[in-house]
Amino acid sequence: MHAHPARPVALALAGLTRRFGALAAVDGVTLDIAEGEFVTIVGPSGSGKSTLVRLLAGLEAPSAGRLLLRGRDITGLPANRRPTAMVFQSLALFDHRTVGQNIEFALKMKGVAPKPRRDRALELLRLVRLPEDYYGRPVTQCSGGERQRVAMARALASDPEILFLDEPLSAIDYRLRKTLEVELKELHQRTGKTFVYITHSLEEAMVMSDRIAVMRAGRFVQVGSPEEIYRRPVNRFVAAFMGEVNILAVEGGVLSGLGLAVPDAAGPFAVLRPEALRLDGGALGVEAEVAQTLLLGSRVQYHLRAGGQALIAEVPAGGRALLGPGDRARFGFDAADIAWVAE
């Protein structure tokens, strides 16, 4: 769980724990986050990721463990005295203020004079690609995407050392979210700041992150690059969390549901991604009957039955006629497509 070796550590989490009564919402979390890194903490609801980010921002005090910002212990520092900033899930914009007043808030708290405050706010409006005349507009008159950008600008205004983002896109509709994901990534590159992003969507994490930490029951189950997480999940939980996936039990070198022998079985469970199942080629293959066909834009998803085993396959939509329910076909894959997991 070490950060990029070439870059210094911006934030070090050392055994961070938060207990509520007998329950440990965050249970001994340790991680080094590198300067300028985009780290995403991903987990289902109740995994403790929201509590964790509140610990990082100083809105909650840890029961045990330490938090080091560039080597300085900030564990006991309250939120208003930490040089970090957070974008809230609800955005938590000050609806009784204008866009400009929202963005300037942190500077006003620092006692910065109105003129430089305003200059900085206008600079940030440009950074988040909002027109400058939004400065005097009430935030209540902004659309969802605009509010999102105001929240980003507000958090960045005081030039925080680290930016925490607690599911800021969760309330936004799908298409706008896709756009904002890309913008957020760009913003990360332009500012060069360290971003710690919280989400329940691994898909979102994949798009933006340098590194992903998958959280479950207050602990990190896997930390790695998006590709590592995707290709080499450490267990069924991580594999299933990435979306629809085929998980097959292995007994004596045989995929038990399919009755198919596989060479070099390296664990009790085989994880096979839907796109690994192809209609042509593949050293291994199963005869399957199509139960349902779902057209997903450029791809087709087949829900299959092979023996007693249900499978999901995703193939490109173009090129050949779609299979319908009741059709039978051979779906092939290679042994290298399988990720073996122990639990």
């Binding site: 100083g58 809105l59 909650e60 005090a61 309250p78 939120a79």
Partner: peptide
């Protein structure tokens, strides 16, 4: 909120 401020 953090537990700072007046005691319970």
């Amino acid at each position: 909120m953090s537990r700072s401020g007046p005691l319970p």
